[in-house]
Amino acid sequence: MSDELRPPPEPHELDPTLPGVDYSEQVNVSGIHDAVLREKFDPREGMEPMPIWLWVAVALLIGWGGWYLGTFSGGYRADGFDERSGGAFLGEAGAAQAAAGAAAKEDPAVAFAKLGKRQFTANCQSCHQATGLGQAGVYPPLAGSEWVTGCKKRVIAIVLKGLQGPFKVKGTTYNNVMQAWEPVLDDKKIAAVLTFVRNEWGNQAPPISPEEVAAVRAEFASRKVAWTEADLLAIPENSPINIVPAAPSPANPAPATPAPAVAPSAQPSP
C-alpha cells in the first residue's frame, strides 16, 4: 500500500504451521529467485495515461454521435417516428397519405384490385406463394390452374369451404387440407382476392363480384365440411349463380352468423 516497493516478507508470515493460515496464498519462494524477479520488475506508476490515439478516437466518436443525433432524430418530436424525415412528422406525412388515399378512392376498380392483392398477401401467399406456383407436392399452384380460371361457382365454393383429401390440379394430385375462409373473409374480400388470382401470373378470367360470392355462400350455407374433389365435381360446370337482388346490401354482405368451427376433421396422411 506504500509508494515504495514492498519489503520482503517476514519469516513468521510464511510459517505454514500457523492455524488458520491461508495456505493457498502462502508463498515459499527461494530468495534468489525472488531477487531475480524483483530486479526485472519495473515499478509501474498505475497512472499510464490514455494513449493519444484513444483520445482522438474518443473525440471522433463524440463528433459522430452528435452528427447522428442531429440527423436521425426526427426533429425530437414525440410524433416523429421516421428517423429520416428530419422535420416532416407523422402528422404531416399522415395527412399527405390520407389525401393520396382519398384520391385513390375515386376509382373503385383500383381500390378493388388493391384489396385483392392485399388479401392474397395476407392469407394465401404463405401456401400458394407470391409466384402463385404453390409448393411442389404440397400446395397446388394457382397460376394456370383450371380450377382458378374455370367455373366461377366452384372456385368461390372452394374458397368458402376449403378442401380436403386428394385433389388434382394441372394433372398432379395433391393430398392436403385447405382451410375454410367463410368465417374469416367477407364477400367483398373473397371476390377481390378471386378476381386478383384469376388475372395474375398470366391467368385471364372474368372478374367475380361480391354479389356472386354472397349468392354462392347462401346456396351452400348448410354445408359444414370442406369439399372433396368428388363433391366439387358434382356441381355442374358453369352452372348459373342466382343472385338474389338487393337482399344483402353489398356494403354489409357477410352473414353475421357465428360460423361453426370448420375444423378439418380429416388429417392428411403424410
Partner: peptide, 10 residues
Amino acid sequence: DSGEPIGEPT
C-alpha cells in the same frame, strides 16, 4: 498485501 511477493503466480 505487503506480504505478497511481486510477480509470483497465485
